[in-house]
Nucleic acid binder design. Structure first.
Lengths: 175, 175, 175, 175
DNA sequence: AATGAATGAGGGTTCATTCAT
DNA sequence: AATGAATGAACCCTCATTCAT
């Protein structure tokens, strides 16, 4: 992965995630990456190939993000870390998430595969904590997270900290 | 609103919501609506105008969807109806929601305005039911709903009925 | 067939036949036809479609060119008219022939179909004139014609009239 | 002439002659020659230079092909060898001829220079054989040959052997 | 109101060519 | 000599939009 390839990926990631895939022209990407337009096609074949490369990298990052939960034994810690996730998202991951949400339902990209370990960890945690329906509990928490994340990405959440505390309380977790 | 105008709006709604605004050309819309391309511009000025008209209609529908909750006095009924919302979505509204989710973060369309009545109704309900933090409870429920709706629109929900029951139980509501 | 469509076809015919299909850009065609580039694609779908339309018209013209021979009973007249063909080619047909020769071996365009009537007429004529091997005689004459035509199109023939007379003599035909 | 230069020339020859000069990209040539694209330009300056080199080699080969006729004293042998020419073309020369026919009328390449010796030999032969118009006879035979060659290159000749015999007979030559 | 021909800007992509290594 | 990254112009084509009818 050369320097210029990274510039292209970075520029494309931000443009795609801000304005959308179809609304972003390859020439805009080239300009933002300070690179000739032709270079994009030399390295990624075509625009879709560029998107694919970005999504592949996104998968990698998502896997890493989910790792701490999968490796955690303490059930309350699993839930706590999960709830913390949307609030501790960093600059670059931020863009990946935004892009993923935008592509949902159009591109054939399935993030559930990456989510599997998280689901399993959560179900295990809820089981240990003797919740009555651990699978549904997991499903519910993940949907909650999805909505929350989307809301954070669109900057429509006001009282972040207070709300996080509230969620923790719901699952009887000390902050 | 003439017959042809409706054909255009309908065609555009489904194309925009399925493939996305930028991925849909006005010529595709015209073809699907069995109408000349020029007519779109006569009636809606430009492509953005077409989208605006659709969103306006979406607002109207959203308002109607939210009405039953705003008019309900019984707090448990408010919550119940709210939770039922994503499971009872009809064919056409379906497309509107999908479109709205796709536009989130790009188009300057604020659906919170339409959601206000629902928020108020829920906060009122949670207050009546003596929840400790009614506002946060409302926020949480709405995020939950958002995630759920998105998941339904992308057809990634399996056990719909069971899950609905589970949610109702969370809020101590009989089905 | 509108006026502008004709302008496009004409411009393309001459450019394709002078410089070659691949060496001619659609923008050059548009410029020469005093027409916007987009119009080419509206009317002919794509560049290949433009070529196809030209070839179709070429077929039509070729058919007409061959008609007099097919309808002639007098065998010597058949041969005479055939030999006259390459010398009496008009301005526009000229371009068609040139194009056809350039496409030979690349494009899947078979002009033999159009040549069939000529072949039959010639074979009939040679039979009537009691040539020993009429089919081979026909084949030979047509190849001769091909070479001659190609040479004329490339302007490498000097003594046209004298040469025509010579050919006529070969087949014992009075000029 | 290094090994790689030859690979390039060979690859280019076949691609140019099969698909045409303009339809063949330098990258395709590089790939087929198992050579980097840059090398083409180091050795041949530019694409046109590559074509020129091929044509130069073609001239050389044409000269050799024509040599036996120029050196032949027996007039019937001159004609016989000439008529045999298109039927005995070898694999590589095949490609050269095909390319030459494709370039006719576009590139400024004059093969008549190379044909001169053949023309002279033929004219001499026809003179010796007391044909009435040796020059025209030569011209006719060469055109015939051209048409025949083109037809062979495009694989539209069926009964090669029979036809060759027929031609020989025309010039009273025993096979 | 409605059509569809026509436009010109911009789309993604390929091209011949250059340059640092 | 040889590579392959990099360029920018040009390629074919699609787009939103306008206009005459």
């Amino acid at each position: 992965m050369t320097e210029k390839q990274n510039q292209i990926l970075e520029a494309a990631l931000h443009l795609f995630s801000d304005e959308g895939y179809h609304a972003t022209s390859t020439s805009k990407v080239a300009k933002k990456a300070h690179v000739s337009e032709g270079l994009i096609f030399r390295h990624f074949n075509n625009k879709q190939g560029l998107l694919d490369a970005i999504l592949e990298e996104g998968k990698r990052r998502l896997k890493i993000l989910v790792l701490p939960m999968a490796n955690e034994d303490n059930p309350r810690q699993v839930i706590k870390k999960t709830l913390n996730l949307p609030f501790e998202i960093n600059e670059t991951d931020y863009a990946y998430w935004k892009l993923l949400f935008k592509l949902k339902g159009t591109q054939h990209y399935d993030d559930r595969e990456q989510m599997k370990p998280l689901e399993q960890a959560l179900t295990m945690a809820f089981t240990k904590l003797r919740y009555r329906k651990p699978e549904l509990e997991t499903q519910s928490l993940i949907l909650h997270l999805d909505g929350l994340l989307m809301s954070i990405l669109n900057k429509t959440v006001k009282n972040e900290l207070e709300f996080k505390e509230f969620l923790m309380n719901k699952y009887h977790i000390d902050v």
